[in-house]
Design a protein around this nucleic acid. Sequence first.
DNA 1: AATATTCCCGTTTTT
DNA 2: CGGGAATATT
Length: 723
Amino acid sequence: MQASTEARIESLLADLSDPQREAVTHTEGPLLILAGPGSGKTRVVTRRAAHLARTVTEPHHILAITFTNKAAREMQERVEMLDVGRGMTVSTFHAWCARLLRRYHQRAGVPPNFTIFDRQDRRKLLEEAIVSSELSTSNWPPRVVDSVISRAKNDMRTAGDFADGSADWERRTIARIYLAYEDLLTRRGGLDFDDLLMRVAMLLSKDSDLRAELEDRYRYVLVDEYQDTNAAQYLIARELTRRNKNLCATGDPDQSIYGWRGANIRNILSFEQDHPGAKVIRLEQNYRSTKRILAAADALIAGNVNRKIKTLWTQNEEGATVDVVELESGEEEAERVAGEIARQIRDGTRAGDVAVFYRINSLSRVIEEALIREGIAYQVARGVEFYNRKEIKDVLAYLRILINPADDTAMLRVINTPPRGIGPTTVQRLAQRARAGGRSIFELLRSGDDLSDVGRSAGKVGQFVELLGELAPALELGAREALEQVISRSGLRALYRGADGADSTPDANLDELISAASRFQQASPDATILDWLEHTALLSDVDTVRSEGGLVTLMTLHAAKGLEFPVVFVIGLEEGIIPFRRHEENEVDEEEERRLLFVGMTRAQKRLTLSHARYRMLRGRTDRTVRSPFLDELPRDQIEWSGAPAPSPRPSGTVEFRELPEDIAEWSAGTLVRHPLHGLGQILSLQRGSKWTLVDVEFQSGSRKTMAVEFAKLERVEFDEVG
DNA sequence: AATATTCCCGTTTTT
DNA sequence: CGGGAATATT
């Protein structure tokens, strides 16, 4: 018995490098694993969990928090393969928080049946809040207010303390909107994404009884992608491990790409100060990429000033050069990428091994079209889009209103969908009366109050309430039956059964929704409809990416984090796209953009191609582009340039200035000069700026160039020397 | 109430 | 360019 346990532990460590083994066998106290790309982090983390479960604790005392559901699922699977998975909690921050809030709803002060408001719901509510604050959405763009409030919540600032101490009028106005928004949200029994985190963080800091209970349950906590945690997540991790100190954080500061949504890279950088006695282990050997790919990525990230130096190395083969390709247009770029993929597939590459990454979603379209022309099957990581479709949201709204009668947002969506003769006037009256009575619309409707003054549609309203009453018991059924009942009896099925047959997708989507629900239930038989609803609300784009099935995968650079593919294309390497720049908003975090490209490049195992187009059509306009400055930071000896000249050789790091020529005083328009590359030319004009001396030169080749004398290797030539 | 039409918007990344 | 909202039309 004893011997076999030891053997099993030994097998957990057998094929690990020294630092990996050290990380796996660390048990007590804070641990930071700084894991470079492809350094076997997942393997270390799963082995460590298994090791803990075999040596010092039980699986159900372990909590592992990941960034996406996909990562959670994969980790769960891998831990189960090591035969210790049962009982271990593996979840995303958001999903875990949602579950906790339901379980401890009373202590958290939230309704047990709260609904999670998605981005659209939230936007709508915000618009309402703006209007009800007697402001206009044109002066206070919901988009902007939204991100400010979201940021505030991520930073743990409630509506109450958001404007505290600030004399800034704009800020105080947003605080008013924030307050109104919170009020609406509360009334509707809703929580938004950020609330899930903020509420739990607040709960854990205040409620020491609960904390003790959780600390007892979760004795070992692991937080993955720690570099992307925001203040709320940081607090949750800290509070959970206050007593036991067993926080294991894994991540890589060079892969921090969510600063824009409140992630604080400082969380990982100051882990050692925050957690005295922390052990730090660096995993720097890369098992994923070729030497050339790694060298290129490493050179790029070296351009960041604010970073902890890491030495990435690999024993993998040298591999092919990294390709940088310039094309004329986005269309040609897409054709080139699709053509190249087709060629590689003919040569034996599996389509599922290929991925195309882009900075902005709108770039996927051309690629998709080109892939279709080539007859290559692909998938786009855009799973959330499915749940944003009208017909899907309709169904979900029915479920929402049945689960949470306070959810007016859902009510307004379904009350006349499908059309049942309850027009805008009636709805408005109902909403008004509900508000006056401090109730939701559904609560008013089923209260039995006399609604005859509502008008002619009172009867229709009665029928609708009856319908909802009939549907309610369906929630107790299995997912499939429940959904089928709701869809058919609500009339949604009939509504979307394209009478003309022209467009049957909505109808098919309803079926797909039913299968998704029953798949979910199959995977977790104890789950309720509420659980499923929650699951759909917390789905991310990558979560829907299938690894089987042999499809080329298209996704944003953000979604690519944590994944790997043998063959990777990154498209749109143009100034303004990578690095992304938004007009009139100059606050671009160039270092974060560089990290983002770094993440993309380091996903590649064997082949990496970076491309850019000379002209790019965006939002209907075709513009001349400038290739991304990041391309010029790549080491020339690892790169194969095609379609465009390689950048002129430049000493690595800083730009070298030349002394001005001694005879510069004699230079003027008309002076003949020689340039090592362009040959003989004549100065057309010369101007001495405060910084540089600029000359316009016309060369014999006919080309005209403006160059700085401090840079250009120009030398003056006498007339008679030329003859 | 349903459909047709226009217009106007924004336009990064996402749990 | 394309989606969604507001507006016009029947």
